[in-house]
Design a protein around this nucleic acid. Structure first.
Lengths: 240, 240
DNA sequence: ACAAATTCGAGAGCAGTGCTCTTGACAGTG
DNA sequence: CACTGTCAAGAGCACTGCTCTCGAATTTGT
């Protein structure tokens, strides 16, 4: 969040007063938009309201974000980064693999519950007609990478059981998983990698169901079921 | 879909011409709304456009649905029912538990891919400011009930392994799971029931990630990963 | 069968939205 | 100093959800 040294960043610090003002206003717009997003959701996010709150006129806002979708995209990228960072710092605080896994899952759920509308923005229904631009895929990988990375280090230190798969991996899936493994965890056995992905899908599903209220009247609060699921799937991926 | 005998339905058949016209128009509105929903999504669904397409004026539509949210709620209930029914007929076609489980999972994914916007309506981000009315929770239970019901019959016929849980069920979760089991599958052991719920959450998560495009460039198509996950989780719940 | 009550579609209108275009003022650079 | 590019502001377009009123049609009660 804090500014790093000028040489460490590709995007150099703004020199002129105009560039500086522009950067600050862009940040202020995003901040206000994020506030309104938390209040009224993506559907209720209004460019006019954001501009009004910032004391400017709506048309001026289009100098910074060419469309409402563009603003949402910026918020989406930020949300991916925030979620990923939440998981990363949670993992960094722990040293043994099991605790890292638990911390990562808990951090992602906590972040989702603290920012439900931002979470819905990235894992909920896509804004209709909206297609994710190229620059969102890299930040999107950050969160699942936290889980896979935990498995990778655990595999390196022998903290993970070889997870004998009852189910053979078909050829079509094998090639897909291999390319995935090459960019995520080259040395991790494919069955373990796949189980990690399965665990990730379960995590997003469980968080999504909780946020959309599918657990009301059943698992309420959902804490017990959540921690239990994490334990079950930790055994599923082979962590011990 | 077809009309049953007057006594078999609580809501009797419309007597007067006015009631009959009202019922038909209500259905026509929902049908047109569903068509537009599939095209432009929940965000783009416009009451005026629906009315326009039906050759009436927008204000007249409010005689049938008092608000846009009310129309969406009707579509949500229908979506829950359609998804649940898709799972039910898929299970009914099979006789052995494993095939029933596979069929149910496949049916739900197929329905979701065929009606992505309707699926997003019920499992995606909630429409902002929208709170699910009471009458949606019964249809919402229908889909997960299909999976649990499959486990219940499998347990009755011995088609399911006692799934020795490595993870003990804490007290708080036990009481929640017991009340859930009472209404879903009274005779099913709690650990199996809980694993069934975990499998359901994974299913919704995986379908949601596929629909929101999180698998593009990784599992594309996602068929192989989907069937593999189903197999893995089938073993996880103890089906064999 | 006739009158009363209810329901209905249509139209006007309000407040709000995303977005475009033009206008005049300001800052940065030659 | 003058020029060029950027900026905020305002007016305006087409659209939205929703409310209200007003006749017309239909159902209901007597």
């Amino acid at each position: 969040m804090t500014e790093t040294s000028p040489t460490s960043r590709q995007r150099r610090a703004p020199r002129t007063a105009r560039e500086r003002a522009r950067a600050e206003l862009t940040a202020a717009i995003k901040e206000e938009a994020r506030r309104q997003l938390a209040e009224v959701g993506a559907h209720g996010l209004s460019l006019r309201a954001v501009a009004r709150e910032l004391g400017m006129v709506s048309s001026a806002l289009y100098r910074y974000f060419p469309s409402r979708d563009e603003l949402l995209t910026a918020l989406i990228v930020d949300a991916y980064d925030a979620l990923g960072e939440a998981g990363e710092v949670a993992v960094a605080r722990e040293s043994v693999a099991c605790e890292q896994w638990r911390a990562a899952c808990r951090a992602m759920r906590d972040w989702a519950r603290a920012h439900p509308h931002e979470y819905s923005l990235i894992y909920g229904s896509p804004v209709p007609g909206y297609v994710a631009p190229e620059r969102t895929i890299a930040p999107a990988e950050r969160a699942p990478r936290v889980l896979i990375e935990t498995l990778r280090t655990a595999w390196g230190t022998g903290g993970i059981e070889p997870a004998t798969p009852q189910v053979p991996v078909p050829a079509a899936l094998r090639t897909q998983a291999e390319t995935l493994g090459r960019s995520f965890a080259p040395d991790l056995p494919l069955p373990i990698l796949l189980r990690g992905v399965v665990a990730w899908t379960q995590l997003t599903g469980m968080i999504g169901l909780e946020l959309t209220g599918h657990f009301v009247g059943v698992f309420e609060p959902a804490d017990a079921f959540f921690t239990h699921s994490v334990e079950e799937l930790m055994a599923f991926v082979g962590l011990h």
